[in-house]
Design a protein around this nucleic acid. Structure first.
Ligand SMILES: [Mn+2]
Ligand SMILES: [Mn+2]
Ligand SMILES: [Mn+2]
Ligand SMILES: [Mn+2]
Lengths: 238, 238
DNA sequence: TGAAATATTTAGGTATGCCTAAGTTCTGGC
DNA sequence: GCCAGAACTTAGGCATACCTAAATATTTCA
């Protein structure tokens, strides 16, 4: 049976819910680690803002505190909170990579499974799959996998990837990553041959529809991407 | 994030706790599926009998009912309960086999990890690891893995394996399975060369100590097994 | 610079699944 | 058949993590 129990004295809160909050704060806050509001966390986790406030107070009161909470102004991850968030992100991305490479999952199904399992694997499991995969640096969607010490590959060099939707017509760039949240979108992108590492050239932006015409690799024909699609693709301009 | 939620109308109870109860009832009840009392479940799950009574009432009230509950006389699994129990046992044993064969876990560590993960893998995950392993029939400890339809290999033929402690001196038998609950014990058995499939010959039972002298395979030297150890080894007399 | 709009918090409540303490029912030995 | 002790259930609570509705703080902008 699962660990559970231990309703004892001053411990950190639960764990699955806690993990999800820390990961949400980490993802919403971005590189600059800006303060994150209750509303943002609420919509990210699809729960109410009142529930979030309640939980943030617990996370701030935990020993050690997992967030720094300023009433009415939002939260930041504490050192301990950030460490745990990075650990969960590492779990998530290692699991995704493992499911795709070892178990042959299609890339649109790995996210959902990883979202659950990330909370329940042991350090041993993490270590074994990392070793089996040769300590990969990126997951199937092109997202960087934090190392054991919390460092991120590509954390230092170059400027951060930008959304494809921000390229100017004529510009060419390499796909850095694609959002892993929407299976339909991922299947569509795979069918168009768009995946991390592929070169894209922005041909033009259509008026009214707001959609983008891009050339995939060196192919002749153009591919049309709707606005949300183009925002879900991050590219690195070499 | 995990599925969770749905505090809606008449549904089956939670899931992790429910799974553990159903599996406990399944394991305690044995082949003959005899009625199982609250006390037995309580000590198996290391919780109080009061908690068990409470949960059994919920399981019996579930739609469909997961157990048949007779106040003061114990429970049996319903058809739906047995189906779920077998599914969890299948998960557990497939995961153990997977951890040992694909991830190189030592056989004394697989049980603890499987005990947690069995509740959280998807049908897809189950299907993928079963395929990767070539649809194995037994786990690393020699326990039969239920098939998708709930049938157990070796369910029909021959008599059920008996404890090594019940052999008569001079008898030879093949190890069918060993208990997976105690890592120390498993490490000890591995060191002695005792694992499923190995032939054991009972040499004699020592007076007072109650321990058993057995010959492992065709080796010369004898191995001494304490009573609890000899009860944890099930053998098939050909 | 004040509302009005928006964001956030507080208050009160629910479901799950566990606990202890205090009954109640059952059972085996006499 | 009776009755003590074991087994079981009931009653009352607690922690986690959600929710809705109502109050309050902050921000926006006319
Ligand atoms: Mn880890
Ligand atoms: Mn990903
Ligand atoms: Mn299954
Ligand atoms: Mn086993």
């Amino acid at each position: 049976m699962r660990d559970a129990k231990e309703p004892h004295g001053g411990r950190s809160p639960g764990s699955e819910a806690t993990d999800d909050y820390l990961k949400a704060i980490f993802e919403i806050g971005g590189r600059e680690e800006r303060m994150v509001g209750s509303k943002e966390i609420a919509s990210h986790l699809e729960i109410t803002a009142a529930s979030v406030t309640n939980m943030l107070q617990k996370l701030a009161a935990a020993q050690p505190p997992l967030v720094v909470y300023q009433k009415h102004h939002g939260v930041n991850l504490s050192r301990a909170g950030k460490k745990r968030a990075l650990e969960i992100v590492r779990h998530h991305r290692l699991i995704e990579t493992f499911l795709a490479q070892v178990l042959g999952y299609p890339w649109d199904e790995v996210h959902q499974e990883a979202e659950r399992l990330e909370h329940f694997i042991s350090e041993r499991f993490e270590e074994r799959i990392a070793a089996k995969l040769g300590h990969p640096e990126f997951d199937p969607h092109g997202h960087a996998i934090p190392a054991l010490d919390g460092s991120l590959p590509g954390g230092a060099p170059g400027r951060a990837p930008q959304a494809l939707s921000q390229l100017k017509p004529g510009q060419t760039a390499r796909v850095a990553s694609v959002s892993d949240k929407d299976p339909d979108m991922l299947r569509h992108l795979a069918a168009e041959g768009i995946r991390p590492g592929i070169r894209l050239t922005l041909s033009e932006r259509l008026p009214f529809s707001g959609s983008f015409q891009v050339r995939v690799g060196k192919s002749e024909k153009l591919c049309s991407l709707s606005e949300p699609l183009a925002s879900a693709i991050l590219v690195a301009t070499k």
